[in-house]
Design a protein around this nucleic acid. Structure first.
Ligand SMILES: NC(=O)c1ccc[n+]([C@@H]2O[C@H](COP(=O)([O-])OP(=O)(O)OC[C@H]3O[C@@H](n4cnc5c(N)ncnc54)[C@H](O)[C@@H]3O)[C@@H](O)[C@H]2O)c1
Ligand SMILES: NC(=O)c1ccc[n+]([C@@H]2O[C@H](COP(=O)([O-])OP(=O)(O)OC[C@H]3O[C@@H](n4cnc5c(N)ncnc54)[C@H](O)[C@@H]3O)[C@@H](O)[C@H]2O)c1
Lengths: 219, 219
DNA sequence: ATGTTCTTGTGATCTCTTTCACAAGCGAGA
DNA sequence: TCTCGCTTGTGAAAGAGATCACAAGAACAT
């Protein structure tokens, strides 16, 4: 099996899987690399290359068996087991996540939620009871939490991440706009709205400049 | 000025800017490419290369003037103006965004919010009144909305994006887990929690496999 | 059987990004 | 003024990822 798979490949695999699940639900039997590519915004060659890192799943002349490939991709991505997720910080973002139905549907169990604010402890949000931080270590180990979602203010984010990892988390999803340090071997992804918004501003601004230049050229 | 700047460069520029703002606030005068690199998780050479696309901002032997470079980066990213943002879909995620203080701080005005549900229309969330969809076009043009944040259910996302663009949005930030199509010339970024979570699962799973292989080798 | 039509899997190639390495430049101190 | 220590800016090299292009199958019709 392949050595090192790039993040962009993994992201695309998720997209293919999402598409395959939809096709499977509506009982489409086969799909071509082109079919997958068009639905996920990439090229047929890219789809085939991505899959080829893991084996050969299609039939020449025919395409891929939808259900089959779906199962294969779930296997590859590690989605044949369920994953226990804990949410740290139950503020605006944290509680939105607790109420997010998609998680359970997709194999993620929101196993616990923690908050430093005593006023929030004990609340039931989306079927999860908010626990005090003091119970973090015990709960992580009891419920086999392997993914921690950081939704605390920036000031607390690094500390909470470190603590989650020490308590057994193997992966961290960070919503706070700070770069977090985690030991190597721990997976880490960030969801940074401000970064994305600023990126959009750049794109719009730069597009404007290009338009200006074109206009100049026409003169 | 440079031709085409990659997304990864733009993301890093945002990170540098975030760091510079923090340094500026605590009145540090100068910073080296290494200093910036360490704080943002990259390398000194990368920092210099990124900046070099836009000009030459440092002093050899000294480093960069913090305030100066901050202003330059704000200029480059297009953050010297304010941007009007509209939130489409005021559910769990949408209302979390409306209450997010960072936006206003950073030059983004949440100028409007829309929802299809009559029960939500008229509510005041984080100082923004929720409007019916019928007012979308007029409001976008009145308030110069240029960024639309999609926070509706997946089914409505494409339609809302199309409508926002037609109403004048130049950029779309999408929270719904679907690939949206927008005309070329419109900037588009997505925030997809499930994609990131699945990516984390892959990383944890793959790391496990590597560990297995190492263990085998040792035998 | 044979030919026709599709679509996969994959080396080869191209393009884009990151890293390297060092001359050029700046300030401080003698 | 000259030297020394330090850091930038940038071509050149290396590395990664995306695209091309085509031989190798698979089904089906004749
Ligand atoms: N609100 C948004 O739309 C939004 C969007 C993107 C990112 N974020 C980021 O997500 C994070 C949370 O934002 P929010 O708007 O939900 O903030 P919030 O203030 O609504 O919630 C933060 C919660 O974290 C809790 N908390 C504080 N310290 C803690 C600690 N040490 N351990 C555990 N919990 C702690 C607080 O009690 C509070 O309940 C912030 O870093 C923010 O920048 C928010
Ligand atoms: N809740 C989360 O934590 C979370 C996280 C990531 C992504 N998302 C995604 O964000 C989107 C919204 O999620 P949510 O949890 O806030 O859902 P939600 O059901 O709480 O909110 C959706 C809102 O959109 C409104 N709406 C429906 N159709 C609309 C239309 N055509 N135009 C405008 N508004 C419309 C609904 O009235 C509702 O208020 C979904 O696509 C979801 O997959 C949610």
């Amino acid at each position: 099996m392949a050595r090192k798979i790039s993040d962009s490949t993994v992201r695309r695999l998720s997209r293919y899987l999402r598409r395959l699940r939809a096709l499977d639900r509506r009982e489409q039997k086969v799909v071509s690399s082109r079919g997958l590519a068009e639905a996920t915004g990439t090229t047929a060659a890219q789809v085939r290359k991505d899959l080829s890192h893991f084996g050969s799943f299609g039939k020449r002349g025919q395409g891929y068996d939808v259900h089959d490939l779906r199962v294969q991709l779930e296997e590859i991505l590690g989605l044949t087991r369920r994953w226990s997720v804990a949410v740290l910080g139950v503020g605006k973002i944290g509680s939105a996540l607790l109420g997010y139905g998609f998680f359970t549907e997709r194999g993620f169990d929101v196993a616990a939620a923690f908050d430093a604010d005593p006023a929030k402890v004990g609340l039931d949000l989306g079927g999860v009871r908010v626990q005090p931080l003091s119970e973090l270590e015990q709960t992580f180990s009891d419920r086999g939490v392997s993914i921690a979602i950081i939704a605390t203010p920036v000031e607390a984010a690094q500390e909470m991440a470190t603590r989650a990892v020490r308590a057994g988390a193997r992966a961290v999803l960070n919503f706070a706009p700070v770069k977090l340090n985690v030991p190597s071997g721990v997976a880490m992804r960030e969801m940074d709205v401000t970064l994305e918004l600023e990126g959009l501003c750049y794109m719009v601004t730069a597009a404007g400049h290009v338009a200006d230049r074109l206009a100049d050229d026409i003169e």
